[in-house]
Design a protein around this nucleic acid. Structure first.
Lengths: 109, 109
DNA sequence: CCAACATATATTGGTTGTCAATATATGCGC
DNA sequence: GCGCATATATTGACAACCAATATATGTTGG
């Protein structure tokens, strides 16, 4: 699996909690990231199409709520595995960088 | 500061340990990542130019070792801060995703 | 009542960082 | 002398993202 960027990672993370529709994902990503990441429509819908094509996400159903169409998406098994792998990679990156940063501090103190 | 990709992040992480020349960064990044990330020359030198232009890295000196030129680069104060911020962001991402993944497991077991 | 705003999906054009490939040159080992 | 590690550099292509715009419905406030 190729490199995954932050917006894509957060989409998968949100979907790990259960099916969501596009706009719901935008809201949840904003909340999950403390309003740091606000997905733009172009980013989100392109990401969903891509993730479906990659088999990490599937389009599960459509709903009409309050007159508006909602397209629901869900994580696949492969998507869950990809999220696990990606999370482990991020954790490892943070861990090695933190070790280096701890080693740097004393020299500056 | 805009989004930082993995190769760029690892370059900063390596430089947190002290000045390095380009090829040394390539070697250290490979080692640091357990051979998972092997920087290509195009990626590295473009990243160094960009980081210098952004003020996160500076070109400190040149050496000639065994007949070959070595261009040494070092983290700036801004670069160290950027690395700290980026590391915190990665840790936060990993943490929230891990929480969701822990919540998902029981439903599947 | 209508204007602004939230909800909801979609497309288009541009930017950016990376990959892939190629280039050049030196030192070392076989 | 040939290949390999060392060392820097450039070019073209691609993938994901941002910015902007578009369309349409429901809700809320003046």
């Amino acid at each position: 699996m190729a490199e995954m960027r932050e917006p894509t990672f957060l989409v998968l993370t949100v979907l790990a909690d259960g099916p969501r529709h596009g706009y719901g994902i935008i809201r949840d990503v904003a909340e999950l990231s403390g309003d740091r990441v606000k997905l733009l429509p172009g980013t989100l819908y392109a990401a969903l199409d891509r993730l479906v094509a990659q088999g990490l996400v599937e389009h599960v159903r459509d709903e009409i709520a309050e007159g508006r169409l909602r397209r629901y998406y869900s994580l696949t098994g492969a998507g869950l595995e990809a999220l696990r792998a990606e999370t482990a990679r991020l954790r490892q990156l943070a861990t090695v960088a933190e070790a280096r940063l701890r080693a740097v501090n004393p020299r500056l103190a």
